[in-house]
Write a protein that binds this DNA or RNA. Structure first.
Lengths: 159, 159
DNA sequence: GTTCCTGCAAAAGTTTTGCAAAAAT
DNA sequence: ATTTTTGCAAAACTTTTGCAGGAAC
């Protein structure tokens, strides 16, 4: 395969990823970089499914097999770089998770699928309280509210 | 098929279910009764997947096809009798949802899968606030906290 | 009698896996 | 040089669907 110019050029994001991967015995590959770049590159790409990732990469000419996408997502979830979301549909979605990124939650329109993010310190307070009350070690929490967005309310007519 | 003795005997639970189903043009069948009875009968059966329902019914000699289980679950979710949960694994889980049952949330041990329920009025307060803030019609909300239960913490050893 | 429901088997959709070749350490 | 990773195709799994016979209204 011809050089992809990724692993050799000085790239702070790549160095960061490489360090995290190597620390746990994983390796930095161009595929893993490209997948992570999708999340950090496009502010509109907050929530992506495996298939969407595969499609977007294909659209920009990167031919990565779908199994590699799944395997990369698992690795990044285990490393704490991504979080797995169950937003509604059958498939799983992933989003960037970082020490930088505040914990946030989701408001989903069940009609058009639009996803809005929000934060509220009470959610963290409740998860802390419950995990402590039951003696759990807390890992993470997901809060998803389902409803119908203002735009879709206008389009729904009573039968 | 021989009589199953279900639809004919006076049965308050069946009458209740029949009324709810008929109101929307659905019919009371012995399969739907048996599935709902699983949830209300066994206090330990709070969270069941389609496959678990199918298996439990098979264990007690009731041969219901898996497609019927899925179709019945969809009907009951649409009628507001059951709620669909995304607890962690690949499959979906279902639990009784009633005007009686308070809104509650889940604390899941990612190691052994144990599910604990809890309530907190702050969760409802936050969902109300966010749906109103964004102009959404609120349908429902799911809050799931993941962690490691006290029992499993003792069994985990550092590698 | 009409309409809805069930069971079966087949299909669809997402996710996982075995294995040889390729890439990263 | 060693160990991990990729791509491919096939498999596994959950969930859905078409259709003919059966059950509920």
């Amino acid at each position: 395969m011809e050089g992809n110019g990724f692993t050799d050029c000085a790239n702070p994001q790549a160095d960061f990823l490489k360090e995290i991967l190597n620390r746990e015995g994983f390796r930095l590959t161009s595929q893993r970089q490209k997948i992570l770049a999708l999340f950090s590159g496009d502010p509109l790409a907050h929530h992506l499914s495996a298939e969407e990732i595969h499609q977007r990469l294909a659209d920009q000419g990167e031919k990565i097999s779908i199994s590699t996408v799944y395997r990369a997502l698992h690795v990044m979830v285990n490393l704490g770089l991504l979080q797995e979301l169950e937003l509604a549909e059958d498939r799983k979605y992933y989003e960037l998770l970082g020490p930088i990124m505040d914990q946030h939650h989701h408001l989903v329109c069940v009609h058009c699928g639009e996803v809005t993010e929000f934060e509220d310190p009470r959610i963290t307070a409740v998860s802390d309280r419950e995990t402590q009350a039951w003696g759990f070690t807390r890992l993470n929490a997901q809060f998803t509210v389902y409803g119908i967005c203002p735009h879709c309310q206008g389009h729904l007519v009573a039968p």
